[in-house]
Amino acid sequence: MAYSNLEGCLHTAGESLDGIRQALLDISSGKVKGGAAEALHASTYVLISATLERTLKESLTALVNEINATRTPLIQVRPSLFSLICDSQFVSIANSGAHESLNRRVDLTLQFSSHDQCLLNESILPLDGRTIRKKHFDPIWRVFGFSNNSLDLPRHQFTLETVANFRNDVAHGDASLAEVAGRQTVEDTLRYVDEIEAVLLHFYSTAEDYLLKSLYVR
């Protein structure tokens, strides 16, 4: 069974990453030189990070919509997904007085045995809007109940941290473009592009398997 929206996210990410690869190859071949090459090299970390963030957000939205399309009753939904389903109620409880808080806690727990259709809000995702790092993947795996590791290979954690740090240095002006560009060779950055693509492919494969096996059900 194909999940076209999920596939579309991965395809779009591939196109973006191919564009970044070409920019890096233009530096490697000498087509872009000097200060322009340094600026372009440094900026690729911003572009890689933006592609990762956008693709992960869009992929999570696609996953949520696929779950909604199954019209699964709440009584059958795996408990961890209630961290998203009841997000607004958690906030409401936190902002309520003692008496009202108790009533709202009861209302929340009754949803676990409700036969109403599960309807996840696609604007409520397990992301915090910050630069994507390894620490963002672990909560996603817990919320959805994915059974495999959040990253396929240990070195992907280093890649995520490196790209995030370099991205922030460029975006926040904490280091010059020349300094950031000089930290790694173009070949190293090309490898980071490949590994970020592998991270996204791992998420896609995990989400696809999750949907095919209906692992959103208790």
Rank of each mutant, 00 (worst) to 15 (best):
L81R: 04
D116Q: 13
E7W: 08
S59R: 01
T44V: 11
R104H: 06
L81F: 08
L81S: 05
K31G: 13
A94C: 04
L110H: 08
V77Q: 02
R104I: 06
S114R: 07
S49L: 03
A94Q: 14
H41R: 06
G14N: 11
L6D: 00
K31I: 10
D87W: 12
D116R: 14
L110F: 06
S16E: 15
Q117L: 12
D116W: 06
R104S: 06
D26P: 03
L74K: 13
K33P: 09
L17K: 08
N95C: 04
G8F: 14
G8V: 07
G8N: 14
G14Y: 01
E100I: 00
Q117W: 07
G19C: 07
V91G: 05
T61Q: 10
D18N: 13
N5P: 02
C86W: 08
K33A: 09
S88Y: 13
D18C: 04
L84K: 05
A23M: 14
A13R: 04
V77T: 07
D116Y: 05
V64M: 00
L6H: 00
I93Y: 08
L40E: 13
T51V: 09
F112H: 05
I48P: 05
L110P: 01
V77Y: 01
I93K: 12
V46N: 02
R21C: 11
L56K: 03
L102E: 09
I48V: 13
I85Q: 14
R105D: 14
L24W: 05
R105K: 15
L74I: 11
E58H: 08
S28K: 10
R78P: 03
V106S: 06
R21F: 02
V77M: 11
N95S: 09
G34Y: 01
E58K: 10
A36H: 08
L52P: 03
C9D: 02
G19F: 04
A62W: 04
S88T: 14
S83D: 10
R54F: 12
I93P: 07
I48T: 14
S80V: 04
